[in-house]
Amino acid sequence: MTMTPTTLKVNGKDVRMTLDPRTTLLDALREHLHLTGTKKGCDHGQCGACTVIVEGRRINSCLTLALMHDGDEIATIEGLGSADKMHPMQQAFVTHDGYQCGYCTPGQICSAVAVLEEIEAGIPSHVTEDLNKVAYSDAEVRERMSGNICRCAAYPNIIAAIRDVAEGDKA
């Protein structure tokens, strides 16, 4: 395989890498940049553990090759906050016990942050009743978060955390 140079903007920093073209964005983050906060649960787009925010939209980083994101802005869980300086969504997950084993958690949090932005931007979902009035509801969030599996099943706690942040945003 021809090694190919790529530049990703990860959490605000330009990182130059020379990659095997088969490298997924997920493995570029985890194995090359050692940003292991983004998890690999299935490597097949089935679980959501690898969710990151690329150019403002959440995607499964296992389903895309790193080379396809040359120049793209990528936000990972490490970019949202740290254990000492948590993002409000991270703090809400701690407060509401929105996890157990913690393995799906970074993906849930990245997804949750993006979901609130999607609702804010008026993007409808399968359960939106009036396409012209997209607003926060628990049902909207459950629907939109359903690509993020939590086998520990902290679901009601995750919803409580997201609701908390959504209400805080409005206040």
Binding site: I77, E78, A83, M86, Q90, V94, D97, G102
Partner: peptide, 13 residues
Amino acid sequence: DRIDGPLKVAGAA
């Protein structure tokens, strides 16, 4: 609250 919580939500565990 879980004492390992901040590490887990930060992806640092």
